[in-house]
Design a protein around this nucleic acid. Structure first.
Lengths: 353, 353
DNA sequence: TTTAGCACTCAGGGAGATTGAGTGCTAAAC
DNA sequence: GTTTAGCACTCAATCTCCCTGAGTGCTAAA
């Protein structure tokens, strides 16, 4: 069967109505729309065709039609019209961005919160680093009673650790230690930290040998953390305000699935060509998200780092509006963090105790 | 009216039954319990008394009784018996702790997750630092094309930032800069970073003067972050598995209230004398939590840092079990982070590049 | 090809009716 | 004086039945 222009027009009307109201819509209601100049009977015929073609579904005989996942897909790919942000919207987006994202420290989680607020849906934000993760340099700064070990990685990440000094180790010994570390462990991925290598280092380290295990441990952690990406999920409760989650069972299943492990698998799916990606219900790879849609977008923030933000929500969500807002947000971020004078290698270290 | 032993016994039976089943319980069911050797009529009389005294409530005439908040309070303060962890439980708690809390880096959020899992309730974890927040020392490490600024605070926190170097600044200039910073800004709270002071610093800093604002900015951030405590909330979805939140409206209200702002007000309530604190429903200070109870406990992890973990759940929760698990966990943490050879001033720095 | 008309379907909602757990009270038993 | 058995009463929850109305598919006429 052919998908005529009229069929498309009707399909679009159905999808958009359903997005707005979350209620099945019938032939009569469509016929009543100003831009429809056919009778309800005609529309009924067309709807029967669209149902046969798999674009519509009927919850039960005497209900109206709702879009099927295939219907959403078609809508997203072909029928959706760009949503234009209003002046007010750009305004408040701008303001939120500038006021909240000052510190990069927790910018990622802030992003999540922002996106969640502006979409009224749960949002997630992921920051991932690319790159090989090796140490490019060790630095040792003596302090009273100890020293600070500074580890710089090849992706310009810097981490440090305060280490207490055994009594017998002198400042001279630390210099030696530093030299040995820099000579042996730099430019080496963590997997190649073999016991033999560590032994050799301990032997060369003189009086400071006892410190080697602590240092290597820390270094390994740093390198491993380097590969891991951080995931923040916020606004889960927002799901409950949408009618499709009025059933607690469904909401519960959904929300439990919305944890970080599931989310952290999503970024892999983003097609490098298309920064914006929409996964409609059953297209979702994560089993837990089968009932929902995911809209996600990538953004670049300087070298070595890449991020993703996205929202999760009912399949019936306003894709046009959400993609518009996400895009705007992603662009804003890239601009903010891309163009600063100082390199984006912006350092913030958290220390405990 | 007097609260006889028998009344207490009955109240305890009611509370514990309600904790288990979430259903109102009637006189007959209580009389059927093995340890009760009175008839249902007697128990009915006693229940009428307990209701008059405010310890029980009746959802409606023909339902059984449920404990009132005052009833819970009495139960917690006087009737609750210590819950003894089973060997299996201690086992799995131990394992979870050791395997998951290796890195202190994100230990706080890990804690939250663990507690949430072991209680099947939303959990929060807060780490707060005490202390005045001043810089005890600046350190500058030159690197190719820039330098790393290391800021050590008085509470042994260390943070760092990578800064690009303008061409005309030499290594010698950096030494001067470092000296000036250490002379002028150490031991000074951020509020005293006055414009005049900064001007004076810029003037003394020679060719590196242009870097002063960036450095001061960063330092201020570090000091401010120092005061702020981090809050993690996890497992919100777990609420939905409890019968009191089968009503989506209630669940939604609750979950929206469960955000970080509300939670971060809780720690202030912990009585220093009693590390374990239980807030029953209406006793809650946060309006949003009026319908729920909060169990929280403090733990100390070395100098300068203090933490809190807690769970939020229906007023009908198994206080005995939960307090037992939380205590065990808190003790374990204190042990793990308190007794290590190296000082708890364990440094981990996150850097964005 | 479109439209009007009509019989049919079926979820949703409301009005009783029914059930049964639980109560309070009274009077007898201990 | 305390405990218990008995009984009438209450009321949420559940079930049943019926009605309503939105929506459909089909047919026949325009």
């Amino acid at each position: 069967m052919e998908l005529t222009e009229r069929k498309k027009k009707i399909l679009r009307a159905i999808v958009e109505s359903y997005i707005r109201t979350a209620e099945p819509i019938g032939s009569k209601a469509i016929a009543a729309m100003p831009e429809m100049d056919f009778s309800s009977a005609t529309i009924r015929n067309e709807m029967a065709d669209l149902t046969a073609m798999g674009y519509l579904e009927q919850p039960h005989t005497s209900a109206g039609r709702i879009p099927s996942p295939a219907g959403y897909r078609l809508y997203i790919d072909e029928l959706m019209q760009d949503y234009r942000l209003t002046v007010d919207e750009t305004h408040s987006l701008n303001e939120a961005m500038t006021s909240r994202l000052q510190e990069f420290d927790n910018a990622i989680s802030q992003m999540g919160k922002l996106v969640s607020q502006m979409t009224n849906l749960p949002a997630y934000a992921v920051a991932s680093r690319r790159g090989s993760a090796t140490v490019s340099r060790f630095e040792i700064i003596p302090t009273a009673g100890g020293f600070i070990l500074v580890v710089m990685t090849d992706s310009e990440d810097v981490k440090n650790k305060l280490i207490k000094l055994p009594l017998h180790v002198t400042e001279q010994d630390l210099k030696l230690l530093s030299a040995v570390l820099n000579a042996s462990l730099t430019d080496l991925p963590a997997e190649e930290f073999t016991p033999e290598l560590l032994n050799r280092i301990s032997r060369s380290a003189g009086p400071a040998a006892s410190l080697v295990p602590v240092i290597v441990d820390f270094t390994t952690h740093v390198l491993q953390a380097q590969q891991k990406s951080e995931v923040y999920v916020t606004g889960q409760a927002k799901l409950l305000s949408h009618p499709e989650y009025q059933d607690v069972g469904k909401a519960h299943k959904m929300l439990s699935g919305l944890d970080e492990d599931v989310i952290s698998n999503l970024p892999a799916l983003v097609d490098p060509g298309h920064p914006m990606q929409i996964l409609v219900g059953p297209e979702n790879v994560a089993e837990e998200l089968k009932d929902t849609s995911v809209v996600m977008t990538r953004f670049d923030i300087g070298d070595g780092m890449q991020g993703m933000i996205g929202v999760v929500g009912p399949t019936r969500m306003d894709y046009a509006q959400i993609t518009a807002r996400l895009s705007y947000f992603a662009e804003g971020l890239a601009r903010m963090f891309g163009k600063q004078e100082l390199p984006p290698a912006h350092e913030e270290n958290k220390e405990e105790s």
